[in-house]
Computed example of a mutant assay.
Amino acid sequence: MQNNQPPVQPDDDDEIDLRQLVMTLWAQKALIMGVGVLGAALGVGASLLSTKYVTHGTFLTPSISAGTYKRYQSMLVSGPRLQQYIQVTGQANTPEGQLLLALAESPKSMSEAISPEFAFTDRDAKTFGVKVNNDDPGAMVGLRIQFSHQEPSGGQPVALLSEYARDTIIRVDMEANLLDQCTKLGTKEQELRNERIDNEFSISQEERRAANLREIIARNPEARTFDSRQIVSVEKGTERFLSPAAQLVAAEIQIADMRLAEVRRERERIASALKSDYYCQAQQSLQQATTGRTFISELEKIQAAVFEAQNGTSDIVEQTRNELDVERATWTNTYLQNMRFVAPPEGSEIKERKPGLALGLVLGGLLGGMLGVFGALVRAWWRGDGKTGV
């Protein structure tokens, strides 16, 4: 009988021959090793090229809440303002000035160079001798100032950035404070003058009233005495029912009180006039000063000029001078002495690489080896050199 069974069709060979694959890779081992070594070299090169010398430090500032920091931030991270500060202070031709001029051209770099520092542990406070404001945990304790460059800078750009930050904070605080004091005290002086005029008129009216009462008593001798048993409700407009003698005493007491109030008002007017002149001149000086540090040092000269023509023996003049001395000493402590680095930035420069040499070597070698294997397989397939099963 004839066999009619169909011939068996050979199955498609979809299996990977690992031996053939290994033989192919072994044959291309020189290529794989070469690409791997090249990748490792590129990884090391990338690590070396990413080397930066980083200097940073925490610069203490007056207590600033997180909500009010925006007032300072817009000026602190302003590139044009940093460039202007460097030009005005004559730092444009110095090495650190050149570095900061380049930094000012990048808004992102400016934001990274100056940032707020809100967290400060009790241990750090004891270590660096810093007071922590427990009443306002969200208050800013300082600024984190950081600068990185491909070459060592010795920390000088960070020191210059801290002076720029000091100048910015002084100007933001003083521009608002001095303008407010100049305007408010100038208005107050005028108000006190008007009150003095009104008070002098009231005194003249009371003196006329007292004179009339004396004439009434002179015409009526019996009016000199009054019945102590008389009961009168002394309300506004009813004092006329008192005896003329009692009204005369009340008028003289009223005149004495108004004269005492006039003395106090005149003292206040003199103090307001002196302070108004001082603050207004200080505001003008702030617009011309090269730096905030220079402005603070010039306040003593401004005060001396304001008090030069004043009577040195007057107690109100001396009191006003002492108040301004205390205020200036407070500003000096706040902006010149207390604003400082918790640790000097000089000598704190460190070398950073991203990635490091070891990591760059490993990653580059692995990536190069993978590319070498892929290249070897593609080369074998292209040449038809052996059956790789792919």
Results as ranks from 00 to 15, higher is better:
Asn338Leu: 10
Arg71Gly: 04
Lys108Ile: 02
Gln319Val: 01
Glu191Leu: 13
Gly365Glu: 05
Ala210Gly: 02
Asp124Lys: 15
Leu18Ile: 10
Lys301Val: 06
Gly292Met: 07
Thr24Asp: 00
Thr313Cys: 00
Glu191Phe: 02
Cys280His: 10
Thr58Lys: 13
Asn322Arg: 15
Leu103His: 01
Ala305Val: 03
Leu100Phe: 04
Leu192Ile: 06
Lys301Asn: 10
Leu286Ser: 00
Ile231Asn: 09
Thr294Val: 15
Asp17Pro: 07
Ser115Phe: 01
Thr168Phe: 11
Arg259Met: 08
Phe341Ile: 03
Asp227Ala: 05
Asn133Cys: 05
Glu352Leu: 14
Ala102Val: 14
Lys52Ser: 09
Asn322Met: 04
Gly368Asn: 03
Pro7Glu: 08
Trp26Asn: 10
Arg193Gly: 06
Gly372Thr: 13
Leu160Ser: 11
Asn3Pro: 04
Ser285Arg: 06
Thr94Asn: 14
Glu189Ala: 12
Lys52Ala: 11
Glu195Met: 08
Lys108Asn: 06
Ser153Phe: 03
Ala329Pro: 00
Ala309Arg: 15
Glu175Ala: 12
Leu31Asp: 04
Pro221Phe: 15
Ser65Asn: 13
Ser272Phe: 14
Lys275Asn: 13
Met339Arg: 13
Asp14Thr: 08
Asn93Cys: 05
Thr24Trp: 00
Ser162Asn: 11
Gly154Ile: 04
Lys236Val: 02
Asn134Gly: 04
Asp13Ser: 12
Arg166Gly: 07
Trp26Asp: 06
Ala245Arg: 11
Leu100His: 03
Glu222Tyr: 04
Phe295Met: 00
Ser148Phe: 09
Lys184Ala: 11
Arg144Tyr: 13
Ser276Ala: 13
Pro221Val: 10
Arg214Phe: 01
Val306Gln: 03
Gln337Ser: 10
Leu361Asn: 05
Lys236Gln: 07
Gly364Phe: 12
Ala273Arg: 14
Thr330Arg: 15
Asp12Arg: 15
Trp26Tyr: 10
Ala104Gly: 12
Glu105Pro: 00
Val373Asp: 06
Ile64Thr: 08
